[in-house]
Design a protein around this nucleic acid. Structure first.
Lengths: 137, 137, 137, 137
DNA sequence: GTGGTCTAGACCACC
DNA sequence: GTGGTCTAGACCACG
């Protein structure tokens, strides 16, 4: 599937899964009504303990992104995309705000920061597969 | 002093202190040769366990930002600013990269992201004290 | 028919069916000697796996509410109404007891509780079809 | 402590803990700012696996009833009582509504139901310790 | 087959 | 000491 989990990242694996599912919903890889892979299946595929997957799915259920269908599996809610997009927006916004805060607090000038931003953006835009590998805090 | 510690933040308190000391060095609030408040003093001021302060100072010593002066306390190294600036740069860069990764993975367009960035920048530029309050992961 | 099944409810579907059959017997919608819809028929009507219907009917047989008639289907036993009424009574009693327990444990006064009870009762009494939609645990 | 957990109940233990903590907040046994017993401690006292306790506490954190204080333990939020009272109210209301629904659907008359309610209420009112033992669904 | 709960025991970071 | 995460393996109810 489309998951890219790093067990050594300081953000816990179950949370990485939660985030990646939400992003997949936002960008259309996972559509409303679609089934997500079963706990056991994904657990094998990612070589991760089923409990960890289950916890991620449960969190997604509480966030009303997934619906458990008795004896059949977990399904993406039809209205999930709204919530996920909102979540993505506030997530990105928050991170940007953080970068900004650190930059200014550290005396970095607005021009420097903008330049850094644009250069990173250029890097990404020129890559074919825009999937990041390591996400350290 | 200039510390703004949130005990319920998910970044640990000692790390918040480390980061804020480094930023203060970068932006000139703390200059080489200057003494940093004593563990006991800061511990009282922030109502934080002295061990926590001590650990932060210890880390800063290992990062060669502070120097222990026998019987007098901790002093900012004269060459600290170089290291701190470098640290700040990679810190900000890393955060920007993360925002970018999440944005693109979630299907946000480059234009949207740039707009968001500029709007946040405008917000901050117009404020007097650019110190952020909550830093959620 | 008169079934109102919610697959996402936390009480299992087969149990919802059992309960609703019993209530139908109690209130006279299903009379002794009457045939109950066939597993296949009901399965189609409710868009539910036949196994689930079968399991419900089996339970009802064990509870001596239904009788299997060779080659014809399932029939409501003539003495079912007694048992169903008894079951209904203890079911309602149990639920009332639970509400009471939670209310008192949570410091709700007897007066508050009685008021709540009467107001709910008034709500219902004024409605034509007293069939509830969601039954959360 | 004040917990009364039944491992054979069909509501899971972690959820029993969640409910009982909330009720304790509502009725004043647990006040804002107060620490709840540590995971390990409660785990020993109730002879329940620490993971189960931890899960309950995490749920309570998500429900903003508890706050984790780094390295010190879990504390009742000052504003918890509002949420808990609200939760209790809707919980009790929901149960009452359910009793009512079952009663009416089963053809029980309003008078019968009210009589049952008042008699249960009388039972409880006359008891010294209004703590229920078994809570079957 | 599915998810849900629980146990036992381990390791980590924080204070 | 505290909570947080993860693993391994078990059992259950549901469809």
């Amino acid at each position: 599937m489309f998951f890219d989990i790093d067990p050594n990242d300081d953000v816990p694996m179950y949370e990485q899964i939660v985030r990646q599912v939400k992003l997949a919903v936002t960008n259309g890889l996972l559509q409303g009504g679609q089934m997500v892979p079963s706990v056991r299946h994904l657990s094998k595929e990612l070589a991760i303990n089923p409990n960890t997957i289950a916890r991620a799915y449960q969190d997604l259920q509480e966030d009303r992104v997934l619906d458990a269908v008795r004896g059949r599996g977990m399904m993406v809610r039809k209205d999930a995309i709204k919530r996920c997009t909102k979540a993505r927006n506030s997530m990105v916004e928050e991170t940007v705000r953080r970068a900004l805060g650190d930059a200014l607090a550290g005396g970095m000038s607005v021009e420097e920061l903008r330049k850094l931003f644009e250069s990173e953006l250029a890097n990404r835009a020129s890559q074919s597969l825009p999937r990041r590998k390591h996400q350290t805090r």
